[in-house]
């Protein structure tokens, strides 16, 4: 008997409390699940706050007036609520930024994926990541204090170009384009890189040059990824705030003149929240009406991008 004790001792010590372990497991599962549910709560919170304030906004301002007014003066005594004044500025700046980011980003993606050696790639990718990680307020500084004087110096010397104001849509759009270039580049590069090598080999076997292979075979094969990266970048550009607030000014003007100060939707939100927007005031409600417009625009773009990828993705196995 005494001989058996040492052998039995560890077994006697080992008392698995399975009930407690299972209880802990269930409690943890519920807690983690509720953490995951916070993401749904966030979405509901965004939709609810935007919806209810916008609803009370349209209780005061007719929806038709919101769409057809030709001025945006919600903070003045004579109020007009033409949202297209803000939308036109946002769209114009986004278009300028895409004109920068599409060629730059796409060519950089082609360069990284098709031309650069692995060593160069290893050096270039972190550089683009740094560019993507620069805070937007820094880009705002750059746009207002470096790019605008630079543009004034260069374009001011050319004939037929109107005077560039200190705040203008052009420099905001250009810098915004630089900001979204890394996004276009890295997402497009993923798409281009995943095109199978045998497609390129096939093109080479038919006697195509490298450029012909890239433009006629690789880029079309990666088209869904490229387009969706571009749409996501546009959606980012529309929602960008600091660059346009600092460099494009705060002057709601209808039209597409890139040389004068304009006011985007995001810049308006900053202008109102910087002051003390009292809850219940028309300024406070306008904030959320503009926010809803912005939210819907970016949401539509994001959904379109997801749909586009799913619909047009080329599958290679």
């Amino acid at each position: 008997m005494t001989v058996q004790t040492p052998a039995n001792a560890p077994r006697a010590l080992w008392r698995p409390n399975r009930d407690r372990a299972k209880l802990t497991q269930n409690i943890v599962k519920v807690i983690c699940g509720s953490f995951a549910a916070i993401s749904i709560l966030t979405t509901l919170g965004i939709v609810a706050t935007l919806f209810f304030e916008t609803l009370s906004f349209f209780g005061d301002v007719p929806f038709w007036q919101f769409l057809t007014d030709r001025k945006w003066t919600p903070l003045f005594a004579s109020k007009e609520f033409g949202i297209f004044v803000l939308v036109s500025a946002t769209v114009m700046i986004s278009i300028i930024s895409v004109l920068v980011a599409l060629p730059l980003g796409l060519l950089a993606a082609v360069c990284l994926s098709e031309y650069a050696t692995p060593q160069t790639r290893k050096f270039l990718k972190p550089m683009l990541e740094i560019l993507a990680g620069v805070p937007t307020v820094v880009y705002g500084y750059f746009a207002l204090l470096t790019v605008t004087p630079f543009l004034k110096g260069i374009l001011g010397a050319l004939p037929f170009i109107p005077e560039i104001k200190n705040f203008n849509a052009l420099s905001a759009g250009l810098v915004l384009g630089i900001m979204i270039t890394p996004m276009v580049a890295s997402l497009s590069e993923d798409a281009i890189f995943s095109v199978p090598q045998r497609l390129r080999d096939g093109a080479y076997a038919l006697g195509a040059t490298k450029r012909e292979t890239v433009t006629a075979v690789v880029l079309p094969a990666a088209l869904s990824g490229i387009v969706s990266s571009l749409i996501l970048a546009v959606s980012r550009a529309i929602g960008e705030t600091m660059i346009v607030t600092l460099a494009a000014g705060a002057n709601p003007t209808l039209g597409f003149n890139p040389f004068v100060p304009v006011m985007t939707m995001t810049a308006f939100i900053v202008q109102v929240t910087k002051g003390d927007a009292v809850h219940g005031s028309i300024a406070y409600q306008t904030l959320f009406a503009v926010g809803t417009t912005l939210f819907l625009m970016t949401l539509l773009l994001n959904i379109f991008s997801f749909w586009f990828v799913r619909r047009f993705r080329e599958k290679y196995d």
């Binding site: 993401s39 749904i40 966030t42 979405t43 919170g45 965004i46 706050t49 935007l50 996501l232 959606s235 980012r236 529309i238 929602g239 960008e240 705030t241 995001t266 939100i269 900053v270 929240t273 904030l287 959320f288 926010g291 912005l294 939210f295 970016t298 949401l299 773009l301 994001n302 997801f306």
Partner: peptide, 18 residues
């Protein structure tokens, strides 16, 4: 939800916070 939230502009989060 999570993939959608990643695409929401940061200023909208600001409005939610407000």
């Amino acid at each position: 939800n999570i993939s959608n939230l990643a695409g929401v502009p940061s200023i909208i989060y600001g409005l939610l916070g407000l």
